[in-house]
Write a protein that binds this DNA or RNA. Structure first.
Lengths: 250, 250
DNA sequence: CGCAAGTTTGACGCTGCTCAATCACTGTGG
DNA sequence: CCACAGTGATTGAGCAGCGTCAAACTTGCG
């Protein structure tokens, strides 16, 4: 069973076995890291690329008044700043929200693989385009949607992304190792208000969330409330046909 | 006098004259476009890259309820979706906020130049990294800053970006062809509240804004209010020394 | 000169924030 | 196995920042 990273790229490109084994090499040496650890610190000039194999992380920035804005969630299969070597310094930090397995790959090694396997290069760029589209959706949500819409949209997004790496179980449940404060800091809300908002969604029977596990009971209704359309999460069809891209929800 | 695009790239790389002339070729055929025109429509699969030579545009998305969230301002020198050819379809639209001169360049032509001149390639990638950093700052602002902080930060950002392409005049004034509604849709506020917020800033003598022209009278104070630090707008030093990157404000 | 678009101002209400207390859960050590 | 501490979840009361609605005014433009 390949890891989340490979499962993710398989959605974006039709990989040969030699391509898969090149990817396996990249991820052959994952490290166990603990919740709260910083992977990249603001101001750093990192020369390695972090690859999430299990567990969750986030990009975030702390403001002067002590508040935190989370800029992205890093899920299993995600990688962190493909093009970071161009940068003079990081303008934000990256930390783990749960215990995780992370492969720390020298930038040059990834670039080597990208040069040898153009299909992988293309898939990785597609994946960063998706990351950007996610960021735009976050902006839209925070800028123009109510709390309940934002939360709904976010839950749809996370469920969909997890589904793409095979982390949603048969019964629809999935791990959601976020505190309500983490969610709040990503949604531009307070944890108190997130609590009330989730309570509303639970009360309507749309979701079940408890003990770091979640389930979207009524995906269509939740998507409608949040104005969620999964298209932006899978913009680059793999070279092969649709069989490689099964429908996500309908 | 080279155009804004070239002035911008010169901040990011030390260009030879043959590099400059390759860039001039790309931008040799600008078209005059009018305010309100759409350059790219959501759902399109564009194969040309839009290059702003004068005037302002924006990326934006319209929501079901009719509201609009602006995702980015395109200023003279900015280009629009270097890597768009990978995408299946655009998840947002691009339109002009003022009359403008736009060069519409086939993606292949730009990629050709990037292959022949690696320094240009690097500079273009740096420029997209800056665009992403701007987007992150917008998210931080909308998520965690008050209206007055957001507006201050945005004005600092715009002034700084214009300065980088030589569009801030000696006396500190610059063109700001935005309606208050445009500003509001970018800040996640309503135009009414933007009006009151600008009035406050004007009242404190921090800015002067009227008739599509603006001036930041007290840059340091405005930056302090907005929590603005220009570092993210110039993350990639040019290969040459600091002389090529004069201080922006202190 | 007159219309259309944008700006400014006021009154009022709601969404989401603050402060604070209580409750539940997890993990740790005895 | 239990007690305890620390973190996170939940709930309540009160409030303020920003939105809504609406009207008057100003500016740009044909």
């Amino acid at each position: 069973m390949p890891n989340a990273f490979i499962r993710k790229l398989r959605r974006l490109a039709d990989l040969t076995s030699s391509e898969v084994s090149a990817l396996l090499d990249l991820t052959s040496n994952p490290q166990a890291r603990r919740r709260g650890e910083e992977l990249v610190r603001e101001g750093d000039r990192p020369d390695t690329i972090q690859l999430m194999l299990s567990g969750w992380g986030c990009r975030y920035k702390l403001l002067d008044d002590g508040s935190r804005q989370i800029l992205a969630f890093l899920l299993p299969g995600d990688l962190c700043d493909l093009h970071v070597s161009l940068l003079d310094h990081m303008d934000h930090s990256v930390a783990l929200l749960s215990n995780a397995e992370v492969a720390s790959v020298p930038a040059g090694e990834i670039h080597g693989v990208m040069e040898r396997f153009r299909k992988i290069e293309r898939a990785l760029w597609c994946s960063t385009l998706v990351d950007e589209a996610i960021l735009r959706q976050w902006l839209i949500g925070i800028g123009r949607r109510s709390a309940i819409e934002r939360a709904s949209h976010r839950l749809c997004e996370l469920r969909c992304r997890l589904e793409l790496v095979g982390l949603v179980e048969r019964n629809g449940e999935f791990d959601l190792p976020l505190s309500q404060e983490d969610l709040a800091d990503s949604l531009g809300l307070t944890s108190v208000h997130v609590n009330r908002t989730l309570a509303k969604l639970k009360g309507q029977g749309l979701i079940e969330v408890a003990q770091r596990r979640a389930k979207v009971s009524q995906p269509e209704r939740l998507a409608e409330i949040g104005g969620f359309d999964a298209a932006y999460l899978r913009p680059c069809a793999p070279a092969s046909k649709d069989a490689a891209r099964p429908p996500l929800h309908g």
